[in-house]
Design a protein around this nucleic acid. Sequence first.
DNA 1: CGCCTAGAAGCAACAAAATCGCATTAAGGT
DNA 2: ACCTTAATGCGATTTTGTTGCTTCTAGGCG
Lengths: 209, 209
Amino acid sequence: MSPRPMVRPGGRSARVQESVHAAVRELVGEVGRDALTVPMVATRAGVTPSTIYRRWGDLQELLSDVAVERLRPETDPADLGSLRADLDAWAEQFLDEMASPPGRAYIRDALLGDPDGTNAGQCSAYAAEQIDVVLARAVQRGEPVPETELLIDRVVAPIMYRILFRPGRLDAAYARELVTNAVYAQQVEAGARPTQAAAPRRSKKKTDN
Amino acid sequence: MSPRPMVRPGGRSARVQESVHAAVRELVGEVGRDALTVPMVATRAGVTPSTIYRRWGDLQELLSDVAVERLRPETDPADLGSLRADLDAWAEQFLDEMASPPGRAYIRDALLGDPDGTNAGQCSAYAAEQIDVVLARAVQRGEPVPETELLIDRVVAPIMYRILFRPGRLDAAYARELVTNAVYAQQVEAGARPTQAAAPRRSKKKTDN
DNA sequence: CGCCTAGAAGCAACAAAATCGCATTAAGGT
DNA sequence: ACCTTAATGCGATTTTGTTGCTTCTAGGCG
């Protein structure tokens, strides 16, 4: 009945985990991601290779863990006084970080060594949290707000799709354009609905509002 | 003036490539993707491991090549008589194929062993080609059509994002919803533009309209 | 406060895979 | 038919990944 020794978050295990993660970060900077090997990381971390193999399975899963940590947003989105301004600023920063060479590398790594999708889900959750902060502030101000799902589909998804699948350039103007369209869609949905084809997104109640 | 011997597409090289690809397809079915190893593939293909290492680098790049082949659409989208019907049908089939367990696996593999993004770009190109076929037919009929880019951002990207980053279920209703919104957006852009915030996608000149 | 237990790490022998130099084959052009 | 050279085969070597067993220690319990 004793709760769960399932994982041991403290003590030596924690130290090992931290030192291994640190070793990865250092070595990625020094020799590059491609030259990384498990034995190399183990040596730098002062650990035996078998420890890493047992805890992470392989290099990809380890890199995935490290990548997710680095993709975690460190601060809340800035408060610029309006939903539109907050979203613009957040989307621009999001695009910048994700589309940068290191950002792309982290995304790839996060997806790569992630058999069950846990890490990928975490990335998605980070973005959703940031958006929720912005939306909550807008609600406080009394502004009408779109649903988080809409913003993920219209802003986050296109950015990530282009990063992963298309070589082309991504700039701030594109991010703003996506925000414009998303916000406009929400306005249409909330207010005038020109045609019946409007936008019954994720209808829990797609009646009128 | 002779084209280029850069790669040797014919003869033995081609036979080796085909036999290796075939070996991968067979073995994935027999022992599963996780149990695959380069030596195993080499043996089945009647080839030395070093051949595979030299041509593909590692198992991931080989799997990526095979995955892209399997993601290539085999037939043009059905012609159902209207843009809306064609898009609905295509999006539903696209979602079905991509969200299925084998589809997800192919997508992951395609992205995984793809340092320069060539294979990922190819996947994106496949989708764009299919959409272009649908749009070209609609133009023939005299229907107004959205841009390919809009459909990729609004339909393809959200589907792929959810497949890659979110655990939730994806069903045909969601695909239709995305198509509805995309087609509606295009109608707004082309015709009545309720507010000036409408949808200046990809503005070459984003001044006023 | 000190034992007990079990999960985690160390160690070392082993198995498997990846790399590399060199010999051989065979496309594709002349 | 010959020549050039990319591509493959082969085998030795290095590196990486696995496994059984021992040792250590965090966390629970008396």
